[in-house]
C-alpha cells in the first residue's frame, strides 16, 4: 500500500465514523417521537373496574366499561351451560372448552371482552345462529360461551383477567 492510499483510507474511516455516529444519534432522537404515542403512564396504570353482580338474574347479562372497552357479564342458566358444554370440539374454529372460559365453581358467570375478534365491533346479544352473540358488522356468530362458530372472526371473544372479590362483586383487570 502506498502512502497515498493509506491517507485515503484513514480519511474514509473518519467520514464513515462521523456518519455512523451521526446516524445513531438521529435514530436515538426518533425514538422519543415514536414512543410518545404509546399509552402514557396514566393509561398503563388505569384502574381496575369492580362490578356489583347481585342484581343480575339468571339468563340476563350486563355490559360494563373497562379500559374503554365493553365487558359482557352474563349469568347463564343451567341449560345454557349444558348447551355450551355439549359442543363437539371439532365444530369449533378456535377449539376451547367452556370450562376454560369460566372460573371453576362459578360456571354460571361468563365474563368476556365484548369485542368481536374480527375488526373490533361490539356483537349483539341473543342473536345469531348459536344462541349467543352476533356481530352486525361482518356477520360473525358466537355461541353461549362466546366462542366463534361461523363468520370471518378468527378467534373466540377474549376473557379478561378478573376475579371474584366476594359472591356479589367481580373485579376486572
Amino acid at each position: 500500500m502506498s502512502k497515498e492510499e493509506k491517507k485515503v483510507n484513514r480519511r474514509d474511516f473518519l467520514f464513515t465514523a462521523t456518519y455512523t455516529v451521526g446516524a445513531v444519534g438521529l435514530g436515538a432522537v426518533i425514538w422519543p417521537m415514536i414512543d410518545q404515542m404509546n399509552p402514557d403512564k396514566a393509561q398503563k396504570a388505569l384502574a381496575t373496574t369492580e362490578v356489583d353482580i347481585s342484581q343480575i338474574e339468571p339468563g340476563n347479562s350486563i355490559t360494563v366499561l373497562w379500559r374503554g372497552k365493553p365487558v359482557f357479564l352474563k349469568r347463564r342458566t343451567p341449560d345454557e351451560i349444558a348447551e355450551a358444554r355439549a359442543v363437539n370440539m371439532d365444530d369449533l374454529p378456535d377449539p376451547q372448552r367452556d370450562e376454560e372460559r369460566v372460573k371453576e365453581g362459578k360456571d354460571e358467570w361468563l365474563v368476556m371482552l365484548g369485542v368481536c375478534t374480527h375488526l373490533g365491533c361490539v356483537p349483539l346479544k341473543d342473536k345469531g345462529d348459536y344462541n349467543g352473540w352476533f356481530c352486525p358488522c361482518h356477520g360473525s356468530h358466537y355461541d353461549v360461551s362466546g366462542r366463534i362458530r361461523k363468520g370471518p372472526a378468527p378467534t373466540n371473544m377474549e376473557i379478561p383477567k378478573f376475579e371474584f372479590v366476594d359472591n356479589n362483586t367481580i373485579k376486572i383487570g
Binding site: 473518519l14 467520514f15 465514523a17 462521523t18 455516529v21 451521526g22 444519534g25 436515538a28
Partner: peptide
C-alpha cells in the same frame, strides 16, 4: 457526551 463526541468527529472531518 454524545454531542461532544460527534462535534469532535465533525470538526476533524
Amino acid at each position: 457526551i454524545y454531542l461532544i463526541l460527534l462535534t469532535i468527529l465533525v470538526y476533524l472531518s
